[in-house]
Every structure is written in structure tokens, then in C-alpha cells.
């Protein structure tokens, strides 16, 4: 159960340039984390899966301030993700929940977890097996967009799906 997963790209830069990037291999080194104990991670080329997913669907959904409610737009992107996951039945995903810097650290860890799970629940409701999905909250720790501006904050209130 402690198989190494290679080539996972850090979720932060997923939207575009990360296709050939190989950073963050360590990040999900332990497949036994979270509550999906029975996930058996295969030796599929993770980099290709991640890149393919990011090319074919929208990997990031955004949330309103202090909220984990899925917007209509978020639901449509997640529906695309669900369809893709059905077409790629060997792919597993990690959903990363994030918050802007305008909250307190511990509450934001909880809120990021709630955001990741809002996305997860939607995918499960769309028929994706729960044991293909892991979640992690980064709270306000790993901002995707830098700067103390409302635009940056909006981008950092997200759930980012990383396929591998």
C-alpha cells in the first residue's frame, strides 16, 4: 500500500504549462492517506494522465467567498470531469481544496476540505467510484495566484482536480 506514484504535478500550475513538468513526485507518495484505504494505485504513466485530463476538461472550479457551494459553472465543469473519468476508468484523482488569504488558518483548512469534498460528492453523485477520489485541503497555504487583490483571492478559492 505504500507504492510510489510518479510524476504527479503540483496542482498549482495545472491549468497550462505543466504538461511536461515533473515536480512534486513526493506529494502523494503514500497511497494509504485519507479514507480511501482500498485504492490500489497502478503504474499508469501519471504525467500523461494529468496532462490529458488538463487538456480535455477544466480541472479547477471556483467558489464564492467563505462558501463551499458549487456554482452552476462549477457543476458543469465537474460534470465534464465525471464524463472524462468514465472514459478513463483507470485514472484516479486527487481534489485539492484551497482558500484565499482573507480567512484564519485553521478555519481555512476546514473550508478547503469542505470545498474539495463538495467537488468529490458531486463526482460521486455522477457515478464516479468514491475509491478513485482522494481529497486534500491546502487552506490558505498554497495560493495558485499571488497578490493581495480581490482577483487573486477569487482564483484561490478553488477545488483543483489532479488526475493520475
Amino acid at each position: 500500500m505504500f507504492k510510489q506514484v510518479l510524476g504527479i504535478v503540483c496542482g498549482a500550475a495545472l491549468l497550462s504549462a505543466c504538461a511536461s513538468n515533473d515536480q512534486g513526485a513526493d506529494l502523494y507518495g503514500n497511497a494509504n492517506g485519507g479514507w480511501s484505504d482500498d485504492v490500489n494505485i497502478s503504474d499508469l504513466s501519471a504525467t500523461d494522465t494529468t496532462a490529458k485530463f488538463n487538456e480535455e476538461v477544466t480541472a479547477v472550479v471556483y467558489f464564492p467567498f467563505n462558501s463551499s457551494d458549487l456554482t452552476g459553472e462549477a457543476k458543469s465543469y465537474l460534470s465534464e470531469q465525471a464524463a472524462w473519468l468514465k472514459d478513463n476508468p483507470r485514472a484516479l484523482i486527487l481534489i485539492e481544496g484551497r482558500c484565499d488569504e482573507r480567512g484564519t488558518r485553521e478555519y481555512n483548512l476546514a473550508l478547503g476540505e469542505r470545498r474539495a469534498n463538495a467537488a468529490r460528492s458531486y463526482l460521486v453523485a455522477k457515478g464516479i467510484a468514491a475509491d478513485r477520489i482522494r481529497t486534500i485541503s491546502y487552506g490558505k497555504e498554497k495560493p495558485v495566484v499571488l497578490g493581495s487583490t480581490p482577483a487573486a483571492w477569487a482564483k484561490n478559492r478553488n477545488a483543483t482536480t489532479v488526475a493520475y
Binding site: 485519507g34 479514507w35 484505504d37 463551499s68 485553521e106 483548512l109 476546514a110 476540505e113 469542505r114 474539495a116 469534498n117 463538495a118 468529490r120 460528492s121 481529497t135 486534500i136 485541503s137
Partner: peptide, 27 residues
């Protein structure tokens, strides 16, 4: 424990921690 654990503090007697555990998104 399955899930994220966070926000720990010791009890005044040092025998326990009090903290949050998030399961399925709920802390």
C-alpha cells in the same frame, strides 16, 4: 485516524490533545 487532523492543543494536564478531525469534508 482517517482524514485530516488539525488545530491541536494540549489539555492543561498534558494528557490529551483537543483538535479537529475532518471526515468527508466535515470538521
Amino acid at each position: 485516524f482517517p482524514g485530516m487532523t488539525f488545530a491541536p492543543r494540549f489539555s492543561p494536564d498534558g494528557k490529551k490533545l483537543v483538535m479537529s478531525l475532518a471526515t468527508r469534508g466535515n470538521s
